[in-house]
Amino acid sequence: MPDKKKEEKLDSPILDETLPHQANSPSFKGSGMKMEVPFVNDYGVVIGDSLYNSENSPLNNWSEDSDPSIMTGEQWVHPTNDIGWNTEENRELIEKKIKPKGVPFTHPTKDTSYRKD
């Protein structure tokens, strides 16, 4: 399966370098990080549109034969419109104008984003 994000023109929720959909979402204005528009991943799912629902999503087509690992990897995470930015540590990165480095942390059994939106 290719890692490339599909190029497709999508409406962007970006308004003045911020995402108005989440009350606790930090503003990227003045941070030096460029807000990125939503993209369509290899499964035809729109990532970063703030709607969190797609008819192509494995969650909408789940069965007992579905392998949960199909929903792992960077193609499921939007670089600037992700709930992970609502954590105290990540908000601090933006406020101090520090660009994150490396691969986003994920935990195999803990949902660290629980109740962060």
Rank of each mutant, 00 (worst) to 15 (best):
I94E: 02
D67R: 08
I94G: 01
S31M: 06
K101G: 00
G102V: 02
Y114D: 10
I98R: 09
D117M: 12
D16T: 07
T18W: 01
T72L: 15
P104A: 12
D49F: 13
K34L: 11
K29F: 00
T72P: 15
D111R: 15
G32N: 00
W85M: 11
L93P: 10
G44R: 09
P58S: 11
Y43T: 12
S113N: 15
D49K: 10
S27M: 03
K29V: 08
Y52W: 10
H107T: 11
G30T: 04
Q22M: 04
A23C: 01
K101L: 05
R91D: 09
E74M: 08
V103P: 12
P108E: 13
T106N: 03
M1R: 09
S27W: 01
R115H: 12
E92P: 03
H78T: 03
E17Y: 08
F105Y: 06
K6L: 07
T18H: 03
G48M: 14
I14S: 03
T112Y: 15
N53L: 14
I47S: 07
M1K: 03
E74H: 01
V103I: 11
M35A: 07
E8G: 14
F105D: 13
S113L: 04
N56L: 12
Y114E: 04
E55S: 15
P68S: 09
N60Q: 13
E92L: 14
K97H: 05
S113D: 11
H78K: 10
K96L: 13
S57V: 14
I94Y: 06
D11L: 08
T18Y: 00
I98C: 01
N56T: 11
D82M: 09
K29S: 02
W62Y: 11
L93V: 06
P108N: 07
K9D: 15
S63D: 10
G32Y: 04
L51G: 09
S63T: 12
P104E: 06
D111V: 13
